[in-house]
Write a protein that binds this DNA or RNA. Structure first.
Length: 400
DNA sequence: TATGCCGGGTA
DNA sequence: TACCCGGCATA
């Protein structure tokens, strides 16, 4: 699953030469997507796939999870800087401004965890979007808008950030790493210490976004240290591809699929994927869910114990044993497997147990092993049959 | 396909 | 009630 790193029209060049996406642009996108269509009076072609310069593509294959995570991170981060072009619909601008200004980050819609549940962990890769030459130019292509809108709005509502998480901002300037708890502080820090051109407030303010990242400090004492979100590597200036002002890394699609609601994919998280504690905690519940869903199948004692000889498969007793004794978190023999085993098990001794529930079959006498009159005497000597056999009734001479 | 036998019909 | 048979399930 390889997808080139999507480039958005929101992408722009940071002073360090890396393609960055203004943190607030996702919010803008959100607002714009909900705005009336008259925002873009002139019809513009919607491109599904735009060539991207090779230099901006991921060299090999960008992991889809990383890409999605990066996109989500971008959406999660919210910068006070509003790259609001003057031509934008004023109705949409306040939304972003309100959310992004004020020196304090708003948690609305920008925090929590996104659920990438679409397609059960197989999100649709976004086509690469050409980088626009002008940063403040109106969006030349709505392809991304549609794409992102699709991505953003088809997803379930983002969950709110937990109260135990505190937001902080870390300076990404090389060899700095200063962490402040307010946007104003971190911006001032960057502007005064690193950028040093406070005389250009507009420009510097814009650049400040590139040099800090939002991090979340886990305040829950019970959470293991692994729950502490690390600053995404993509946000570091060292990353040649892109730098994202971002906050915590959301779970990967696979993890989301494992932790997401619904029993659609009750599989544990993909092996090898680092498991944040929050996700790892959710994994056992999936197992439990699987078990509880099928407990009606697994729990009733299967009466195949009486026929240990005729079953060349796993001994039923062992199956029962495993199912009932297995601890919660271990993967016992799945109910489906048991069902398959039962289906494959010759049911000569218990036809009613393996056959579909039929009231008719319940009362019907099982065919006996003993030979009946027909077999013994043959059809030629029907006169020697017992009366029942002659009458096509249950044989009374050779009882089972 | 052969066999066992249930359920129903008929005399 | 005795007898017969269609039809279904199973081996």
């Amino acid at each position: 699953m390889t997808t080139p790193l999507p480039k958005t029209r929101l992408g722009k060049r940071s002073p360090m030469g890396a393609l960055v996406i203004a943190p607030c642009h996702m919010t803008e996108l959100l607002a714009m997507s909900t705005a009336p269509p008259h925002i873009t009076p002139e019809p513009r072609p919607v491109s599904c796939c735009i060539d991207v310069p090779k230099s901006y593509r991921s060299p090999e294959s960008v992991d889809m999870d990383e890409m999605m995570a990066a996109m989500v991170l971008t959406s999660l981060s919210c910068s006070p800087i509003v790259q609001s072009p003057p031509q934008r619909d004023p109705a949409t601008a306040p939304a972003c401004r309100m959310e992004c200004s004020g020196g304090e980050l708003s948690d609305s819609g920008s925090s929590g965890y996104w659920s990438w549940d679409r397609g059960s962990g197989s999100p649709v890769p976004s086509p690469p979007i050409a980088e626009t030459d002008s940063l403040l130019a109106p969006p030349p292509d709505e392809g991304l808008d549609m794409e992102m809108e699709q991505v953003l709005f088809d997803e379930p509502a983002p969950r709110k950030r937990k109260n135990s998480v505190k937001v902080a901002y870390r300076c990404l300037w090389p060899n700095c790493g200063k962490i402040l708890t307010s946007v104003v502080g971190i911006k001032r820090h960057i502007r005064t210490l690193h950028l040093g051109h406070s005389s250009e407030p507009e420009q510097s303010r814009r650049e400040e976004d590139f040099y800090y990242t939002e991090i979340l400090l886990e305040m829950d004492p019970t959470a293991p240290p692994a729950a502490l979100p690390a600053v995404p590597s993509a946000a570091l200036p060292a990353n040649p591809g892109a730098r994202w002002a971002s906050c915590t890394s959301p779970p990967s699609p696979a993890q989301q699929a494992a932790a997401g609601p619904g029993p659609r994919t009750p599989e544990p998280a993909a092996p090898g994927v680092p498991q944040p504690s929050l996700l790892s905690q959710s994994a056992p519940s999936c197992f439990w869910q699987v078990r509880s869903e099928h407990s009606y199948q697994a729990c009733p004692p299967v009466q195949v114990l009486a026929s240990p000889v005729s079953c060349p498969w796993t001994p039923p007793a062992a199956v029962l044993n495993t199912t009932q004794v297995a601890p919660f978190r271990s993967r016992s023999i799945s109910v489906g497997e048991q069902w398959l085993q039962q289906q494959n098990t010759p049911s000569r001794h218990h036809p009613a147990a393996a056959s579909p529930p039929r009231s008719h079959c319940a009362s019907r006498r099982a065919r006996g092993e003993a030979k009946k009159c027909r077999k013994v005497y043959g059809i030629e000597h029907r006169d020697q049959w017992c009366t029942a056999c002659r009458w096509k009734k249950a044989c009374q001479r050779f009882l089972d």
